[in-house]
Nucleic acid binder design. Structure first.
Lengths: 201, 201
DNA sequence: TTATGTGAACCGGTTCACAGCT
DNA sequence: AGCTGTGAACCGGTTCACATAA
């Protein structure tokens, strides 16, 4: 459901770019490829942002969704892993849009420590506690190999991070008060090969 | 649900590495962080692979799941976009595990064309039709900016690809016979900031 | 009249309870 | 007895139908 809010927001922003001021649930739903009732139900969980008979004021609704998604405040993050995926993530423009700032990049490989990635000097993961405190980071982005991830996750939690975005292909076990979202590339590709295979000729 | 099959398979493979030969649904479910009944129900959609009273023969079940997921045959893919995400994907080791081979990398940026990425020479996206045919690729991996993605997707479909794994943050509209799976980083991060914000203090 | 907000019906996926096989 | 396979109950999320407001 959060995923849908993201989509609504993106559509609202592109409408705003076009100079549109108001939009109906049916139009916004169409742009977002969902049913209008679903869109209204989604929003109704958080309040009532529209005007009956008129629709939604776009800039207002966008601001509401940003607040719901936590995009109205700044987040500090630390990126773990300076491999190819780490490089890609370090260069990811979406961080700015989310008010997420990568404050540090940590790795355990001595050949990578000291190098610059996206203008940030890679530091030794041993410094995790110091880095956590000095950056005030709440979010950890995990882009290390599967084997290293579970142990790293424990250290991340111990260091005081409260949210993890995990790109390693493992199911991490975390205390329930730590927010986790995993992006699993294997699942993405298997989803396609699975449906491809089971598709009507 | 396909996502869960991926997880079962990964657990089966690591059990196999340990030299284990049989496993019960409850043990495998525990390792996969799901309920045992769910695991059995998932498998029951595709057949009956276990032995009552004994459990599952690991190598046999792994082979069955691989077949279900389409991992038992070779897939040819073309990667679109040689930016930082494209680089990361080109180096992704999971492709080998999935029997997916990146046969070509295409980009529209003349500065990138001709360069090597993961030992593959980047070609002009204008060559899409030739490349599709000569590689026999079925799957397109889209790692281009959001703005370029919708138009590219159309060309991909026209060129004859039947499956797309999309990393651009847009909802692509495709004919229903084309298999699509999108990985949206924005949603991933927003999921975490959303739940973080709505988490109990 | 137009378009939102929402209780109620609906539906698909999860869980339960147990039948069936070894 | 032990463990799988599955119809039936359950549950949460989606859709419908309509009351409500401009």
């Amino acid at each position: 459901m959060v995923g849908r809010l993201s989509v609504y927001l993106r559509q609202l922003e592109s409408l705003l770019d076009e100079g549109t001021a108001r939009v109906s649930s049916s139009r916004l739903a169409e742009l977002s490829a969902v049913k209008a009732t679903q869109l209204r139900k989604d929003l109704s969980h958080f309040g009532s942002f529209g005007v009956r008979g008129l629709g939604y004021e776009i800039s207002e609704l966008a601001a509401e969704i940003k607040a719901i998604l936590g995009l109205d405040r700044k987040w500090n993050a630390v990126l773990f892993g300076a491999g190819s995926l780490g490089h890609a993530l370090a260069g990811y423009r979406g961080f700015a849009r989310h008010n997420i700032e990568i404050r540090a990049i940590l790795d355990s490989d001595s050949r990578k420590i000291g190098k610059r990635v996206a203008n940030i000097v890679v530091e030794d993961v041993a410094r995790i506690d110091d880095v956590r405190k000095s950056t005030g980071a709440q979010i950890a982005v995990v882009a290390v190999p599967a084997l290293a991830a579970p142990e790293l996750a424990e250290r991340i939690v111990k260091a005081g991070f409260r949210g993890i975005v995990n790109f390693a292909p493992v199911r991490l076990r975390l205390p329930p008060d730590v927010v986790l979202y995993s992006v699993d590339l294997a699942t993405a590709f298997e989803n396609v090969t699975f449906r491809f295979r089971n598709a009507p000729a």
